[in-house]
Nucleic acid binder design. Structure first.
Lengths: 149, 149
DNA sequence: TATTGTTATACTCTATAACTATA
DNA sequence: TATAGTTATAGAGTATAACAATA
């Protein structure tokens, strides 16, 4: 019954509720799409994503970002280093700190994951009507603004 | 530079990419909003959500849904039972199976979480322009359709 | 003296294998 | 004989406490 949905969405309460449920559901499906053969833990994926954005971070920064304690992050980074995903190097000025960076293969993995998810989403978008795609095209910049703040 | 965004979104590739990144980012922020004082593990939250949708599920169904092995689900359910979130009862016809249901307080918790997230989203929506909200109102049913399939 | 990261140790969570009850 | 759930045991991951190096 699309009328019900449309009516709910007229109010701001209904809009928030509709956006919440569809965003959460869609995100779960997107997250499921990733390159096979490489199985990482949730925290490893988090570190990968954080380093993909911030380029270089210290152990402490990564621990705070992923909400784990420093000793745990030491271990996580060590495992990822063994797997060839990250590299440690000394901080430029503060010799106590350790800077962690992504390796080339980790960058490639991130890129491949992103591509796979986009391809999956594209096939889903193809199943919509042209009018629906138009609506989403207009909504995309708004959603980006909503997510950015 | 909004022009760049608008131009990217003209193609289906750009639309998929924009939807992917904004959906994932927004969902992370939504997930962060929840009632305080009640800290549950990811799997406990998953069980809570699954039971919220399907009302009553067996241990085996929950294990498959949360992608853990039956012995792990036995433990998860036992912990949640101690916390007063779920209750076990025997299956109506098959005495081997155990049916798990949410307690009243778990229903209340789910409801409170949903409300908190909606309120948070509403304050974010208020910061948009009326035109942007209109665009989202039109897009909401499309997003629900996209997430539903 | 404070801070960053690591090591040592204990605890929690999950999986595999074995067991019990029911189909 | 097969299936659903539980129990026993081992392995992976995280946290707290103690430690080393540097600020």
């Amino acid at each position: 019954m699309p009328e019900v949905v449309a009516q709910q969405v007229k109010s701001d309460v209904g809009l928030a509720s509709a956006l919440r449920s569809s965003t959460l559901r869609l995100s779960r499906q997107i997250r499921r799409q990733r390159v096979e053969g490489v199985d990482l833990t949730a925290n490893q994926l988090g570190v990968l994503g954080a380093l993909g954005k911030h380029d270089a971070m210290t152990i402490g920064e990564l621990a705070a970002h992923e909400q784990v304690k420093p000793p745990s992050m030491t271990r996580i980074v060590s495992n990822m280093e063994e797997a060839g995903l990250v590299a440690r190097r000394p901080h430029d000025t503060d010799k106590r700190q350790i800077v962690v960076e992504l390796t080339e293969s980790a960058h490639a993995l991130l890129h491949a994951n992103r591509r796979r998810r986009d391809e999956w989403l594209q096939t889903k978008l193809k199943k919509l009507t042209p009018e629906e795609r138009d609506i989403l095209r207009k909504a995309a910049p708004v959603l980006e603004r909503l997510a950015a703040t």
